[in-house]
Amino acid sequence: MSTIASRAAARLLVVPVLASASLFSPAPAAHADDPVVSALVPAAENAKDESAQHPHHASAEDKAKEKAEKRVDRVMDTVRSRAGKPYVYGAAGPNAFDCSGLVQWVYRHVGKNLPRTSSAQAGATMRVRNPQVGDLVFFTSGGHVYHVGIYAGNHTLWHASRPGTPVRRDRIWTSSVFYGRVR
């Protein structure tokens, strides 16, 4: 009998014995490199061990979530940096803003292009029921959008509201709003 055939026959006998042993106890870490033992360790355990050994190998979902969180942080840092800048009708920054100009300017600085007007911005976002920090807040009257700001959590927003009032954080003052998420 050839050496290859005898090794194959030995493995055919060893695999069932190892398989039954692995049902009662996990494979020792010292044998993790053995291909026979590795085949018997459940894939979930291998994945868990792999992620523990290589934390930089995050899942695509984790990476997307982390990227979104960083964008929200940049959105909020950017809008806060405009606090105190004056409201000027039609202004789109960097030293004066109207409501949609502020939103457009902030999102442009985090790599997202939005249209210029609040109603066009409403059409460019995905409506959401449960807003998250960084989502847009659209104010409506008679079915028309008349104002927009950036949701800051706890029923507040950052916005450029009207002449004489600088960019600031305020409470949302009405229930005639809906929320949109920039895609």
Rank of each mutant, 00 (worst) to 15 (best):
D33C: 07
D34Q: 10
D34V: 06
D34S: 14
D34R: 09
P35F: 08
V36G: 11
V36F: 08
S38I: 03
L40E: 14
P42L: 08
A44L: 10
A47Q: 05
D49E: 12
E50V: 07
E50G: 08
A52F: 10
Q53T: 13
Q53D: 10
Q53C: 06
H56K: 15
H56A: 14
H57Y: 09
S59I: 02
S59F: 05
S59Q: 05
A60N: 07
A60D: 08
K63M: 12
A64K: 00
A64P: 05
E66C: 02
E69T: 14
E69S: 05
K70M: 11
K70V: 07
R71F: 12
R71L: 14
V72S: 13
R74I: 10
V75H: 11
V75T: 12
T78M: 02
T78P: 05
T78L: 03
A83I: 15
K85N: 00
Y87Q: 00
Y87D: 00
V88G: 04
Y89R: 13
A91S: 10
A91D: 06
A91T: 12
N95L: 04
A96Y: 03
A96P: 01
F97A: 00
D98A: 02
D98C: 03
S100R: 08
S100N: 10
S100Y: 09
G101K: 01
L102Y: 00
V103H: 11
Q104E: 02
W105T: 04
Y107W: 15
R108Q: 13
R108S: 12
R108G: 15
R108L: 09
R108P: 13
R108F: 09
V110M: 09
G111A: 11
L114V: 02
P115M: 09
R116H: 12
A120S: 14
Q121K: 01
M126V: 13
V128M: 15
P131G: 05
P131D: 04
Q132L: 09
Q132R: 11
V133Q: 15
G134S: 14
G134A: 15
D135V: 14
L136I: 12
L136R: 03
L136C: 08
L136D: 08
V137I: 14
F139V: 01
T140C: 01
S141D: 02
G143K: 12
H144L: 11
H144M: 15
V145S: 05
Y146A: 12
H147N: 02
H147P: 00
G149A: 06
N154K: 15
A160H: 01
S161P: 12
S161N: 06
R162S: 04
P163K: 10
T165M: 07
P166S: 04
P166V: 06
D170E: 09
R171Y: 15
I172A: 10
I172P: 04
W173E: 11
T174P: 09
S175T: 10
Y179W: 07
